[in-house]
Nucleic acid binder design. Structure first.
Lengths: 141, 141
DNA sequence: TATGCTATTGCAAGTATTTTCAATAAGGAG
DNA sequence: CTCCTTATTGAAAATACTTGCAATAGCATA
């Protein structure tokens, strides 16, 4: 019954509150097959909770992203979308056909380490988007 | 006199046109010390070319980004900004204080190579933004 | 379980971004 | 240098996103 339980704990522990609106956003992203724009989230949310406003959606998304419960990602055409924060993973997207491939986090660990060494930062980005050409478009270009 | 000459050649070769408006955007980004939002670009551009519209700025930025003449980047609070595409480089930004550090492209080459091997893609992202905690905020958190 | 503090919401107004379409102008061809 | 094709611009309307503030409702505490 509760993929959202941990999220609730996280927020409370930090002095914030879990609300029906935020839960609704989390559920929607949980059931989404892929990234959603704020407007897409709003459409679904408004259906489930009539009366809920766009303002709330935008604020919930930014808030949840700030707490790493959801991830923001750029699409191929530079638009902002969101998805549920699952285990850290990344995307490869083809600049020509838009095809997306998911990438394991492990493959980036070495870079994270070298970045941390050179900069002194602690890096915790859990989602990156790499652009390029997929095997198919690579040929035909 | 012409940091913009190569850009012009690139566009023509692809059947597109270089216009005063696009040149203006390139110049502004060229002189900018850091990322600018579309609105900031517009303010400056309108000063240099009265009559030019916001619409044109948005279109020029998206167009130039599509041709890799400028880069789109996310700020710490998830907003879209643009900068001139220089040699490939990346940013580390602190989630707490917003401090930005520039990272050399070379440090990412190994990952690019392993991503290309596992996926068959040709990767050409020239700008990524990593988030985390800077050395200072790392302590006080 | 009742109470109080304050994080969060909804509304309305403001700002930013996108879209449509007719008018304009870049730049290749003659 | 002029003409022609069509990529690009500007204007206005539509849509998307943000902000300020009063009203509401989580949840910690007793």
């Amino acid at each position: 019954m509760s993929c959202t339980e941990p999220a609730l704990q996280t927020l409370r522990a930090r002095g914030f509150r879990m609300t029906p609106q935020r839960l609704c956003v989390l559920e929607i992203l949980h059931n989404a097959p892929e990234h959603l724009t704020p407007q897409q989230v709003y459409e679904q949310a408004a259906r489930a909770m009539p009366g809920l406003t766009e303002t709330t959606i935008y604020r919930a998304l930014e808030f949840l992203a700030g707490h790493n419960l959801v991830n923001a990602a750029l699409t191929a055409n530079g638009k902002l979308t969101y998805e549920l924060a699952r285990r850290a993973h990344h995307h490869l997207v083809c600049r020509v056909c838009g095809q997306q491939v998911e990438i394991d986090h492990e493959i980036l660990l070495p870079v994270y380490r070298s970045l941390e060494e050179t900069s002194g930062f602690h890096i915790n980005t859990s989602h990156l988007t790499f652009f390029g050409l997929c095997p198919h478009c690579k040929e035909t270009e």
